[in-house]
């Protein structure tokens, strides 16, 4: 009977704690979203519904410029990170045992372990030296830096999928005269595709959201949406920042939902 089995939901205080946690998680976000539609300028008094701040943000040249840069960086970083992550995942799951395999797996995840601010400062020093040495000031530094910290986010789902994949499928392909390259193209890659797309989307979202590393690496005039918003906030709360945040939030939720759909276990 259901009564006999253990259920966490019958522990004392279960629903109280759950309610508090969810309120803390979502109340600020809900406030932000609601006030992004506020006709007035404050976040304390509701003055009616309006698209005003969305229009203001949309027609702002600086916002447009930052948004475009954010999307460019995120797209490039996603493509690089996903490619590297796929190769790394293959290298750490589809090879014989070799010395240091686990160590390499851990090292690939370095950006998850090292605090962002440490990575940012080290990149600041390193990139500054490169800028002086090469004279190049462009977007490539940002793209490479983003690609680097996005790699583990793409790597983990792809590796998980490769590890759970039945090796006998690849054995069967080899048994049926497929060369290693054909086996990869015809069997491994199609079965891996959902995980690669999922990993790519996760990388995209992570790149889109980054503030710390971007602030330290970017050259002058290379604001992305998050760093632009941070700059705006320093000057005082402008409700158009709420509107941009809400758009970013929607985009992120959309991509992460797709991520979960793609990585869901299927039979």
């Amino acid at each position: 009977m259901a009564n006999a089995s253990f259920s966490a939901s019958r522990l004392p205080g279960f629903s109280t704690i759950a309610t508090i946690v969810f309120v803390m998680l979502y109340a600020p976000i809900v406030t932000l979203v609601v006030y992004s539609f506020n006709a007035g300028k404050t976040v304390t008094a509701w003055e009616g519904f309006s698209w005003r701040w969305y229009q203001q943000a949309w027609t702002n040249d600086i916002v447009q410029d930052a948004a475009l840069r954010s999307l460019t960086v995120a797209t490039c970083a996603m493509l690089i990170a996903t490619t590297v992550a796929t190769l790394a995942a293959l290298g750490t799951t589809r090879t014989g045992p070799f010395a240091g395999k686990t160590l390499i797996s851990v090292m690939i995840n370095q950006p998850l372990l090292v605090p962002d601010i440490v990575t940012a400062i080290s990149l600041l020093i390193f990139v500054a030296a490169l800028k002086v040495a090469t004279g190049y000031q462009g977007l490539a530094y940002l793209i490479v830096a983003h690609a680097a910290f996005c790699i583990p986010f793409a790597y983990l789902p792809i590796k998980a999928r490769l590890e759970s994949m039945d090796l006998s499928l690849e054995n069967a392909a080899a048994d049926l005269y497929a060369s290693p390259m054909q086996t990869f193209r015809r069997v491994t890659l199609p079965l891996l595709a959902p995980a690669i797309i999922a990993g790519g989307m996760l990388a995209f979202v992570i790149s889109l959201d980054d503030v710390v590393i971007t602030s330290f690496v970017k050259s002058g005039g290379q604001d992305t949406l998050p760093t632009y918003m941070l700059g705006q906030l320093r000057r005082g709360t402008e409700p158009d920042v709420n509107a941009i945040s809400t758009v970013l939030l929607c985009l992120t939720v959309l991509l992460l939902s797709l991520f979960f759909v793609l990585t869901r276990k299927r039979d």
Binding site: D166, N171, A174, L176, A178, S179
Partner: peptide, 19 residues
């Protein structure tokens, strides 16, 4: 290697390609 042998296998788990 397996792909160069004129030998085919029926796997216990069948290992059919799901895609």
């Amino acid at each position: 290697p397996p792909n160069k042998r004129a030998v085919n296998t029926v796997f216990q788990s069948y290992a059919l390609f799901p895609h």
